[in-house]
Amino acid sequence: MKINKLILILLSFVFISNTNVFSQNCYREDYGFDEAAEDGDNYYEFEDGSYYGYAEGGDTILIKTVLYGRRKYKVLVSTLDNLQIASWKIIQNKKSTKLTKKTRNEKYEYTYKTNDKGEYIAEDGKVLDDFGRKTDKNGEVIKNNGRAVDFRVVTNRAVVSADTIYSREVVNEEIEIYSGSDGSEMVKKNKKAKSVIIKLIFAPGEDGGCYGVFIGNQRSKSKKAGKNW
């Protein structure tokens, strides 16, 4: 008897720690959902992954979660009260890297505006010396506040040398893997783990209500852990 009670507590813990009931008094049992968990020799465990919440008509809810690999999942959505689901989607948030090429320490060769004689000329057409400076009739460099100014006009800039750097940038890609409506469900084997966003769009309306996103992963009835769960 003592052992039985101990097991009872342990089992209750197992369930408790996996029971996710969320805000606004939305309870799993309100959805009358237990029967859907059976699947022949297997069953779907919904306790850990499911999500319950409250929304108003017209709201959009995005739930970020992870579907682990090597498992078969069943995902469905249910609403209570007057809340109506307009549509829902499962969007994979897939990240990858893209090799990008960048350059730095560029060295340039400039081409400047010249006249028919090949002399540098300023924007105003005045002929400049070999360093692009304006000179007076005596050939003296005209300074501005004591400094010589380069008046050459750049007509072209060409890179003559540069260091090339390759780097990888993380690219985020959103892939729709399921699109459903009220009452539909996705059943899918998940070979590899996926980061997903479950997007719920509720029909416009004045009333709010509870919604449940049931995310069940398949387990075998024959496994001990499965029985406990």
């Binding site: 850990d48 959009t60 809810i61 739930i63 970020k64």
Partner: peptide, 11 residues
Amino acid sequence: VKVYSKYKFPS
């Protein structure tokens, strides 16, 4: 249109 973003962390 109100959009709410939430997180669900598997245990």
